[in-house]
Design a protein around this nucleic acid. Structure first.
Length: 191
DNA sequence: CTCTGGATTGAC
DNA sequence: TCAATCCAGAGG
């Protein structure tokens, strides 16, 4: 399978959030290889009250301001990491949160890391997929085009199969319709 | 320095 | 419905 190209990231963040649906995320480590298909995303823009970048660049959100195609990994609720794909050119703090994957490869390893045999519980949430894929803070800022953790091209999902709704788990920016997921997919984080 | 509130999850 | 768990960010 082919990796995503630089050209893929020369779109605005909302378009990339949609275009990432159907693409694959793969992580090859000593422990083994795991891969999942992206089925749910959320966009976080500049001037978006829910975005970490809303109040400008800080030590924590630094990689969000980096060039497109890099990873932004951060700790939330003091115990879970979440994984984002950085978008836009350097200096602009925008990114796409990956909220759910459909497990494709390395499912035994995912089950072990997640400590469950339930296929639907493996990657159906932003912190869950981070655990299942073995993503950690060391991946923050790395390149997703040619890094050990990378994105691969998938079949394009047609607009008719994409559902757009408001984002989940926020107190600000609740009304903005920046969440996208593949219709009728059983691995979404929430129906 | 102190205080507050999470881009969540899983157990009750 | 709610606790776990802790740090980044804001305000003094």
């Amino acid at each position: 399978m082919n990796p995503l190209t630089k050209a893929f990231f020369k779109k605005d963040t909302l378009q990339i959030a949609k275009a990432l649906l159907g693409c694959y995320l793969i992580n090859r480590v000593k422990e083994g290889k795991t891969m999942g298909k992206i089925i749910e995303t959320e966009a976080y823009l500049k001037n978006d009250p829910a975005s970490h970048s809303f109040n400008g660049q800080t030590k924590r959100n630094k990689s969000m301001f980096g060039p497109a195609g890099k990873a932004y990994v951060y700790l939330t609720y003091g115990m879970y990491n979440c994984f984002n794909v950085v978008t836009e050119k350097e200096g602009i703090g925008e990114a796409v949160l990956i909220r759910a994957l459909e497990p494709i490869e390395g499912i035994d390893l995912m089950k072990k890391r997640r400590n469950t045999d339930n296929l639907r519980q493996l990657c159906s949430g932003p912190a869950k997929l981070v655990m299942a894929m073995g993503i950690n803070k060391a991946h923050n800022g790395i390149d997703l085009i040619d890094g050990e953790l990378r994105l691969l091209r998938g079949n394009k999902i047609i607009d008719g199969d994409i559902i757009q709704t408001s984002r989940i788990g926020l107190s600000k920016g609740k009304n903005l319709p920046y969440r996208f997921y593949i219709k009728d997919n059983q691995f979404v984080s929430k129906l």
